[in-house]
Nucleic acid binder design. Structure first.
Length: 472
RNA sequence: GCGCCCAUCGUCUAGCGGUCCAGGACGUCGCCCUUUCACGGCGAAAACACGGGUUCGAGUCCCGUUGGGCGCGCCA
């Protein structure tokens, strides 16, 4: 079997949304699985809508997701000359022809079609008409002379055999009147020239596959292997909108998801491997294949993504998670501010707090939020619950505890011993002593284990915070 | 409207004619663990859209209905 070549071909008219990200992932996975090549092509033939900002956003998104492509990204627009060349060849063989129908005529056809309840189809009025009848001064488009009878069959790796009647496929435009290639033509020529063996894309392209097949035939080329994957819908089953999650992948970064978790989640959306839910990067590449992709559309579920992200965070080593957090700081809410105060001492504290923090966070945002007590300045602002704990007898415990703690060795074990002894002596439950400490130390009613907080914060800062609340 | 695709718990899915009174995961609800919150453990509720066939036997095959999606540009 010849080496596999896949590609991801986004159009730079916006950010890399979640559906595109999954398409890219599947192509990447498939290529990596079989030792093939994963190419990237920017479909920027629409000069009106393509922007460099969008190209940058897409590349950035792919890099963040960890989907590295082979070689340089190809600009489709820059290949326009080659596309025209292909059209010339089709013109020469009669597989294509010039059409002088005006936009107004096309509108009219559309109108008529709608009135008669028929689909809009170009009526082929210039198919066999002599070019000498062309209206003067009008630049023609070039259309494919498509088969009008018979059928075109797509043998799809996920959709199976799909048959289209050729009468339903009209003579599509290959070259616009301004001489620029259309998408339909450009994809075919580029995929062919780039040696793409497998076209894995959204099933919104399924009918395009039939049209493109006709172009391949007209050019005398072999079609690639198709794999049209179902689309991702929003939580309510409707098309993804910004409200539902048609966000750029950078939004997921800002929400604190780990690339590995997002990859795992996305892979399992539409694809399965028995009952297995969690995959390491290696496991994913080893297991992925086209046959196990389902044919029905799926809904995006943040709850499951979040759960999965929590698993990945907990499974990550403390060092790796710490590095991920720091690297993501610029994108997290409140992150840049934290980054500024992150001197070597704070870094060490944050790193030391990771084990206690990561058990309690499902995203990096939550992780950062849990670490807030490290960056708070004395006297701490208290939230309602913390204030409540302190007011209901908490201060007395703090006042009594203060000398005992300051006398203790500053280690987890020694501090715990001191507090437990105090609780036993006074007959208080450990919880009723730990909670006031937590309130004074973190300003909240929830935090990592209290002795961890004490040691991470250090003797001086801890005693200061306790003293702040013991008195008042 | 026409064409194509799809249809198992709320969600993601396993299931490829009998081992399914349908399994796993998320979510939900209990209980346990516990210095808080989490994590973890145990348990519960929860689905084969509907109607016809085929077959000794159908979640699994066929047809129809209903519902949903996608496509129908000199956009990609």
């Amino acid at each position: 079997m010849s080496p596999i070549v896949t590609r991801f071909a986004p159009s730079p008219t916006g950010f890399l949304h979640i559906g595109g990200a999954r398409t890219a992932l599947f192509n990447w996975l498939y290529a990596r699985r079989f030792g093939g090549t994963f190419l990237l092509r920017i479909e920027d033939t629409d000069r009106e809508r393509s922007t460099q900002a969008a190209v940058d956003a897409i590349l950035d998104g792919l890099k963040w997701l960890g989907l590295d492509w082979d070689g340089e990204a190809v600009s489709q627009f820059e290949r326009a000359a080659r596309h025209r060349e292909a059209v010339e060849a089709m013109l020469a063989t009669g597989a294509a022809y010039r059409c002088w129908a005006s936009p107004a005529e096309l509108d009219e056809m559309r109108e008529t079609a709608r009135r008669e309840g028929k689909p809009m189809r170009y009526d082929g009025r210039w198919r066999d008409r002599d070019p000498s009848e062309a209206p003067p001064g009008v630049a023609p488009v070039i259309r494919l002379r498509a088969a009008q009878e018979g059928e075109t069959v797509i043998d799809d790796r996920v959709q199976g055999k799909v048959t289209f009647a050729n009468k339903d496929l009209d003579d599509l435009v290959l070259l616009r009147s301004d001489g620029n290639p259309t998408y339909m033509l450009a994809v075919v020529v580029d995929d062919h020239d780039m040696g793409v063996t497998h076209v894995i894309r959204g099933d919104d392209h399924l009918t395009n596959a039939a049209r493109q097949t006709q172009i391949y035939r007209a050019l005398g080329w072999e079609t690639p292997i198709w794999a049209h994957i179902p689309l991702i819908h929003g939580a309510d089953g409707a098309k993804l909108s910004k409200r539902h999650g048609a966000l750029g992948v950078e939004a997921y970064r800002a929400m604190g998801y780990l690339p590995a978790a997002l990859r795992n989640y996305l892979a399992r959306l539409g694809w399965s491997f028995g009952d297995k839910e969690f995959f390491t990067g290696e496991e994913l590449t080893a297991a992925f294949d086209l046959d196990a992709i389902g044919r029905s559309p799926s809904r995006f579920d943040f709850a499951k993504l979040e759960n999965m992200n929590g698993h990945f965070m907990r499974a990550a080593s403390d060092d790796a998670l710490f590095e991920s957090l720091v690297a993501t700081l610029p994108y997290l809410p409140g992150g840049p501010a934290v980054l500024e105060t992150l001197d070597s001492r704070k870094r060490a504290q944050l790193r030391a707090a990771i084990p206690g923090l990561k058990e309690r966070a499902k995203t990096l945002v939550e992780l950062l939020d849990g670490a807030a007590f490290l960056f708070a300045a004395r006297p701490l602002a208290l939230d309602d619950k913390a204030r409540d704990i302190l007011q209901k007898g908490g201060r007395a415990h703090l006042a009594a505890l203060l000398p005992k703690l300051s006398a203790a060795e500053w280690s987890h074990e020694a501090l715990e011993a001191a507090v437990r002894t105090y609780a036993e002596e006074t007959g208080a439950k450990l919880g009723s002593v730990a909670q006031p400490l937590r309130a004074a130390l973190t300003g909240r009613s929830t935090s990592p284990g209290i002795f961890d907080v004490l040691t991470v914060l250090g003797r001086e800062e801890s005693l200061g915070r306790i003293a702040d609340q013991a008195g008042a």
